[in-house]
Amino acid sequence: MYRDPKTFAFTFQSYVQLTLLQAHTCNITTPFKFLERSVFSARYCFVEKLKRDGFLSPPEFSVLDEWFRWICQQQKVAVDLFVYLRTDPEVVYERILKRDRTEERTVPFEYIKSLHEIHEDWLYHKTLYECPVPVFTIDANMDLSEITGEYKKFENQILEKNKIFIGV
């Protein structure tokens, strides 16, 4: 996908949308459902980025967008809260380099920076698309070993009234 986005963007995002729909709609036996990403972040951030960069043709974008709209109207993808782990793109990129995953080695910093700006506009500044639920923002620039402690500070607030948690 990163090496040849023009060829693989539509297929990849179609599959992402399917797997996220499956995650949203799977039955659970616990009182809370935690998802790392959502159909909303896939559409409003990742598909948006591919459209802006010209990696999705107008018809491809329309198909993904119409599927997203249908999913939102016809499927049980309701969420109660987004928890935005707000992280500077430089920190994200450094973490990618440290992980040293084969599939991430070709991810350019500019891609991370641009995705960050889209997330910021959607979740923080609220100037891009309507956010369907409240957003709880946590500063995630700290060392990874400290983030769990930071989350624990707010855990009761996050879980108190919510059954579905989406990290975006």
Rank of each mutant, 00 (worst) to 15 (best):
N141S: 09
V47Y: 04
T127M: 01
K152Y: 06
F55T: 11
A23W: 08
L64K: 03
Y129H: 02
Y44R: 14
Y93W: 07
V63G: 04
T19L: 10
A9I: 09
Y124C: 02
E120F: 09
P31E: 09
P108T: 01
L97V: 09
K49C: 12
E94H: 10
E130I: 08
Y151W: 15
E103F: 08
Q74H: 13
E120I: 14
D80Y: 02
G149Y: 10
T29C: 09
C45Y: 08
T29A: 14
K126S: 13
K163Y: 13
L144I: 07
Q75E: 06
F154G: 04
S14H: 14
I96K: 03
R86F: 03
R95Q: 12
T19G: 04
Q73W: 06
N27C: 11
T29E: 13
R52G: 06
S57Q: 05
S41W: 11
N141L: 06
D65E: 14
I164T: 15
Q157W: 05
R69P: 05
I164P: 01
E155R: 12
E120K: 14
V133N: 00
P132G: 07
P58Q: 03
G149H: 06
S14V: 03
Q13R: 08
L50M: 14
L20A: 06
F32Q: 10
T102M: 01
D53A: 10
K126V: 05
G54T: 02
R52N: 09
F109H: 00
S145F: 12
P5N: 03
A78K: 08
T102W: 04
Y84H: 05
Y129A: 01
P58W: 05
P5G: 04
Q22F: 10
E160K: 10
T102P: 01
L115A: 12
E155M: 11
E160T: 15
R105P: 00
A42W: 10
P58F: 01
L50N: 04
D4F: 11
E155F: 07
F10L: 07
M1G: 08
F12P: 07
E160M: 14
S38V: 10
D143H: 15
C131Y: 03
D80P: 02
G54A: 09
L35I: 09
E150H: 00
A78Y: 10
A9Y: 12
V83C: 02
L159D: 07
S62E: 11
P31D: 11
F40P: 04
K98V: 15
D65I: 09
D100I: 00
E36H: 13
L144M: 06
F82S: 00
F136P: 04
V83N: 01
P31I: 06
R99C: 01
F61K: 02
T106A: 01
S57V: 07
W70R: 13
V107C: 03
S14T: 07
T148K: 15
E130K: 13
S41C: 14
T7W: 00
Q17K: 13
M142R: 15
S38C: 15
K113E: 07
K153W: 00
S114K: 05
F165R: 08
V91R: 00
